[in-house]
Simulated scan of single mutants.
Amino acid sequence: MNPLSPSVPTPRTSLLDGFSLEMTGKDVPGLEEAAHLIPPGTRINVTFLGNEDARMRLGAARAVKRLGFRPVPHISARRLGSRADFEDFLGGLRADAAHTDVFAVGGDPARPEGPYPDSLSLIESGLLSAYGVRHIGMAGYPEGHPAIASDVLWAALRKKCAAVADQGLGADVITQFGFDAGPVLDWIERVRGEGITLPVRVGVPGPAGVRRLMGYATRFGVGTSASIARKYGLSLTNLMGTAGPDRFLHALAEGYDQGRHGEVRIHFYTFGGLRATSEWVAGAGPGARS
């Protein structure tokens, strides 16, 4: 049993095979501490935050590579001030052999700081493939986006998939995290109905404090009604508590049908730290001991 959710057995599901993780540029010490718990070759995304500079981002990607994992640096379109900034970052990744996989995202600023308004503009620039990128991650929003209409999100996803295919690049879709497996599975089924066959990595928060999870949910427009909170295992009356993804992953595994949903994996947002998430996965994977 997982001590974070004593009423729910730790899920052992093949969806955890090939899971991926996410870290910030400041998380290198945490990655070094957790490295022995993480399978070699694991994909680790490195975020592109406004309070971190290119040197820190490149250093984190370099650390991921050095420790035997697969770096997936984020590139935030609206945070790039110029084409030169974009090329400098790509050149730095290539110099460190951390350039083959990236995650292209629009980013938080309401107004672009340079010539790239969204992730599609990064892909269509041709610079990613020119600098040796071979696989591009793109964002998916099962519960929508607080600032972007649903029809715009779907149109953008279709265009990005077409642009990636035209360039002969590999790709996958990583979803925003959520607390309710139902909308996620429904969204993946619609993705397949749109003719998109790319692998989908479902965003899941690793074990973290309830207050922190609720804060991130508010920031990113994730549903947190009382019923959804109970379903996930969050206690809105005990914000000092901690919650893990056990219930969510049980529901996801129970509802998952490969024929309808295609290839699905898990992407962990490590809000509670890389070690806490890595320890949880080490005890939850299909090969874990009882």
Rank of each mutant, 00 (worst) to 15 (best):
G206A: 00
G92W: 02
A288H: 09
A110P: 05
A163E: 03
G68Q: 08
D186A: 12
R111C: 06
A181H: 03
G241M: 03
A110L: 13
G193R: 13
T242V: 15
V210L: 02
V164D: 02
A171D: 02
F177M: 07
T24M: 15
S14K: 08
F268Q: 05
S5T: 14
T24Q: 12
Y269H: 02
A60Y: 01
E32C: 12
G170S: 15
A54W: 00
M23A: 09
L93I: 10
Y131L: 10
E33P: 11
I174T: 13
D101E: 14
A243W: 05
L120N: 03
H36T: 14
R12V: 04
V102L: 03
Y216T: 09
P29W: 11
R158K: 15
G30C: 13
F271G: 00
G241A: 12
A226C: 04
P146N: 12
I196R: 10
A156R: 14
R70H: 05
S119R: 11
F48L: 12
V133Q: 00
R260S: 13
I266H: 07
G209T: 03
A217W: 06
A97M: 14
V8P: 00
V184H: 02
S129W: 01
P9G: 07
R211M: 11
V8S: 12
S150W: 15
P112N: 10
V72M: 08
G68D: 08
G114H: 01
F69Y: 04
L31A: 13
A171C: 14
L16A: 00
A149M: 11
P6D: 14
S82P: 13
G81I: 08
G137W: 00
E33Q: 15
L31V: 14
R134L: 09
V184D: 09
V204F: 01
A243S: 15
R111M: 13
L31G: 07
I123N: 06
G107H: 11
A208P: 00
T13L: 03
A251E: 09
M240V: 15
R134M: 02
I75L: 05
R57D: 05
L4W: 02
L198V: 13
P142A: 04
G206H: 02
A130K: 14
R66F: 00
M56D: 10
G193N: 06
I44E: 04
G132Q: 07
G81C: 07
W154Y: 08
G126I: 10
L127W: 12
G106Q: 13
H135W: 12
L213K: 03
D172V: 08
G178A: 09
D180I: 03
G107S: 04
S82C: 12
Y141P: 07
V8W: 09
L169Y: 06
G50N: 11
S7R: 10
F103I: 06
G287K: 11
T42I: 12
D257C: 06
G259A: 15
G215V: 05
I136H: 00
K159F: 02
N45T: 12
D118A: 09
H250P: 05
G287Q: 10
D96F: 06
P146W: 13
A61R: 04
R79G: 09
I174F: 04
L213Y: 01
D151R: 15
A165V: 14
G241H: 04
R12Q: 08
F19Q: 01
V152R: 15
